[in-house]
Design a protein around this nucleic acid. Structure first.
Length: 552
RNA sequence: UGGGUUAUGGUGUAAUGGCAGCACUACAGAUUUUGAUUCUGUCUGUCUAGGUUCGAGUCCUAGUAACCCAACCA
């Protein structure tokens, strides 16, 4: 109906802010750290931030949170930009936290001068020891009461490179007995003599996340700084720093991150899969990265539909992978041209069709437009799917069996007369007869058959490699895993088969998507060569027959 | 056992004191030259115990469970 879609809690907050005049328009940002590839969880955040700004007449900045030179690389910056554009979003400004390093340094000086920050000579272990535990308060550092002058001098010396890594840090002076661990004098600057992907060797001190993120938001006058739930305890610190620095009051709002069945979503684990060669790179089609979904054949429309459907809330969630599959099938069913490809070939010879004869048959490219057709060759030797033949079927079987009849899609009805086997009893070929009056579109035979199977003309068929992907993990909720998560990798997550296909598929562009009739949706892979086309299975078709079989 | 956050079908997500709805999944049926698509229908839910109220998923009290916080990561 014309019923309005209900608002998520962030939209409600924004509408309230707009109504009361707190803001005239909004500014959001997407703040990735360039230390890995974006995954489907980031897509949720991207979609949220960009659609919010679009909906309420604002803008979204892309800001790289690049405050840790040790883990960050330009390769990641580039991939992140590619992925966001591919998803269909364009940022208003491309910023980097590292653009603000000088300003951030000034903010730190301001804090020191206000008596709200101090240089601590303690080691990392000593700081940890004095921090206390969630149930016990921490203790003051012996360096907590240095004079402003001494702190100024030392912080300046830190910047000047007079100390080694770890020798000193700058800490905010807040409250060592706070029940919130993050308020127990958090470290805000540390020394790292490391090369930064943008500022090169200009700096040897780098701000921590908490001293960079909120301030960067403030500098950009972000009105709604949206992040995930694990940052909730950071919010008091976020607000404290903005208040003490007396800068534009950006506000942080948190939502629950995306979790999905049969996969992992942490960058640390994904990096491990890449480094340990469990998968073939960040864009291995089994990965939950955006680059992987793209390579696998997912469309931006499907990913966006998914992100809209999962909603935005504050409770932990575990989304069924089947919802994502629903979204991609929904889109590809409308848009993907059909083709006939045999994944597990079995030779079929039509004994009453002249050996030298061949003809062209009309096949529709998409079911919703019968005008759009192609011509496909037909002769007496075909490939059919091995799984479409069963020697002793049960009553529910619609496909080919000895003596049985079936229609060849876009072609004729055939009857199986003879099963050819090798010495081991394996079926290696079928001899059939066809019914000339049963030609598709011009059937005067009057014969009704239940089954329709796809096929490929053997003399003109092209060989191809087809990669069949399945879920990456064997268990639904990977958060339940204790010990090494890699032990739960699905050993059958990739199956490679040699297929026979219509010849024109060898010529299509890499990245184009098709429905291989009765099998699923497939996308031509970038590793295709003229000699060997390669296709990735995006997703299978829904298969009620498989279910029927499993029921036994 | 300190602080914070969250509890609605199998999974997500609505209902802002007034008929517990929508989507996915599952199941059943119809249509079908893709066992696809499409169409129709069915099952399943307010964490627990009290209380306030004509009326509670919603408000109050007390529990319970799950998740997050002790990196010089973000």
């Amino acid at each position: 109906m014309s019923e309005e879609k209900s608002l998520n809690f962030i939209e409600e907050i924004i509408e309230e802010h707009l109504k009361e005049g707190r803001y005239k328009s909004i500014i959001t940002r997407f703040p990735p750290e360039p230390n890995g590839y974006l995954h489907i969880g980031h897509a949720k955040s991207i979609t949220l931030n960009f659609t919010l700004a679009r909906k309420y007449g604002g803008i979204t900045n892309l800001r790289f949170d690049d405050t840790n030179p040790v883990t960050e690389e330009t390769e990641y910056v580039d991939s992140i930009k590619d992925d966001i554009r591919w998803l269909g979003y364009e940022w208003a400004n491309e910023f980097y936290a590292s653009d603000y390093f000088e300003q951030l340094y000034e903010y730190a000086v301001d804090l020191i001068q206000k008596g709200l920050a101090y240089v601590d000579d303690s080691t990392s272990d000593e700081i940890a020891a004095l921090k206390g535990t969630p149930t016990e308060p921490g203790k003051d550092s012996p360096f907590r009461n240095r004079s402003v002058e001494e702190n100024m001098k030392m912080f300046s010396d830190m910047r000047a490179g007079k100390y080694k890594d770890g020798e000193k840090v700058l800490r905010a002076k807040i409250d060592m007995s706070s029940p919130n661990m993050l308020m127990r004098d958090p470290v805000i600057y540390r020394i790292k003599h490391a090369h930064h992907h943008r500022t090169k060797d200009h700096w040897v001190i780098y701000p921590m996340y908490d001293f960079a993120h909120g301030q960067s938001d403030s500098i950009e006058r972000i009105t709604h700084s949206i992040c995930t739930l694990e940052f909730v305890p950071h919010r008091p610190l976020y607000d404290w720093l903005i208040e003490k620095l007396e800068i534009f009051p950006s506000k942080q709002y948190e939502f629950a991150r995306l979790n999905m069945t049969y996969t992992v979503m942490s960058k640390r684990k994904l990096l491990q899969l890449v480094n340990d060669k469990v998968v073939d790179g960040w864009d291995d089609p089994r990965m939950p990265t955006i680059a992987a979904f793209r390579r696998r054949g997912y469309t931006p429309e499907a990913i966006r539909m998914f992100c809209e459907k999962i909603g935005v809330a504050r409770r932990d969630n575990l989304i069924d992978y089947s919802l994502l599959e629903f979204c991609i099938r929904e889109h590809l069913n409308e848009t993907a041209p059909r083709a006939m490809v045999v994944l597990n070939p079995l030779k079929l010879i039509i004994t009453n069709y002249e050996e030298q004869k061949s003809e062209w048959l009309k096949a529709e490219n998409v079911p919703n437009n019968p005008e759009d057709t192609r011509d496909i060759p037909f002769s007496n030797t075909l490939w059919i799917e091995h799984d479409d033949f069963m020697e002793s079927p049960d009553k529910k079987w619609h496909r080919l069996s000895p003596g049985g009849m079936v229609r060849l899609k876009h072609a004729y009805i055939i009857q199986c007369n003879e099963v050819v086997k090798d010495d081991n009893g394996n079926v290696i070929a079928l001899h059939c007869t066809y019914i000339p009056e049963s030609k598709s579109g011009n059937d005067t035979s009057g014969i009704q058959v239940k089954g329709v199977i796809h096929w490929v003309n053997a003399p003109t068929a092209v060989d191809a490699e087809v990669r069949l992907y399945d879920r990456l993990f064997t268990i639904e909720d990977t958060a339940d895993i204790e010990g090494d998560f890699k032990e739960y990798i699905n050993p059958d997550s990739l199956k490679v088969v040699q297929a026979k296909m219509e010849p024109w598929l060898a010529e299509v562009e890499n990245g184009s998507r098709f429905q291989f009739l009765r099998n699923g949706y497939f996308c031509k892979d970038k590793t295709s060569s003229p000699a060997l086309p390669v296709f990735n299975r995006t997703v299978t078709l829904k298969d009620t027959w498989q279910k029927e079989k499993k029921k036994g």
